[in-house]
């Protein structure tokens, strides 16, 4: 999709909220839903259309955990680190996945741009702890091994479809 198409779509999203300033968060959520992250151009356009400073838009976008200003992987993996999951050992799952994906430092997305690994404060599925989501699908009672296995399956699937193409 070209940049112009993206900006056109962003414009449509802002218009669908009648350019109301208070809809800023909802607008950014919709944009992120479609493109998985908020690009600089998109945010500048939103600011312009809403008639607010671009610093304000950036300020709000960086306040909320769910907004990403960087492009993300195809699969967004979130490991819950809420209390219940923590008590039932979610940290080793996160650590295991980081190692599996070869992530270091602040890096969140694997170098093949397939996976983005994040933590989430609590998914509210504490009864199933420890849990993990892949593109918002909840996977209950994970272990480091089962989590890696899930990712391996996805990677294999991607490689297969790649090979076909």
């Amino acid at each position: 999709m070209g940049k112009q198409d993206v900006l056109k779509r962003v414009e449509e999203i802002v218009d669908s909220y009648d350019c109301r300033r208070e809809a800023l968060i909802a607008i950014m959520q919709d944009i992120q839903n479609e493109y998985k992250y908020l690009s600089t151009e998109a945010l500048e356009l939103v600011a312009d259309k809403l008639g607010v400073g671009v610093a304000k838009v950036y300020s709000v976008a960086t306040f909320y955990e769910n907004f990403s200003l960087e492009a993300k992987g195809k699969y967004i993996v979130k490991v819950c680190c809420g209390t219940a999951c923590h008590v039932r050992k979610s940290q080793p799952i996160y650590d295991g996945l980081r190692e599996y994906l070869g992530l270091s430092g602040k890096q969140k997305t694997s170098s093949d741009a397939l996976f983005t690994l994040e933590t989430v404060a609590c998914l509210g599925a504490c009864g199933l702890s420890p849990v993990m989501t892949i593109n918002d699908e909840v996977h209950p009672k994970m272990t480091p091994e089962s989590a890696i296995e899930l990712l391996e399956k996805l990677r294999a699937k991607e490689e297969a479809s790649h090979a076909e193409a």
Binding site: R21, E22, A23, L24, I25, A26, M28, Q29, V60, F63, Y64, E65, N66, F67, A121
Partner: peptide
């Protein structure tokens, strides 16, 4: 949009206001 503090009343209303 992912901020625990929005459970606080005035933060919540600020968030509704965008």
């Amino acid at each position: 949009a992912g901020a625990f503090v929005c459970g606080e009343g005035s933060a919540l209303t600020a968030s509704i206001e965008g």
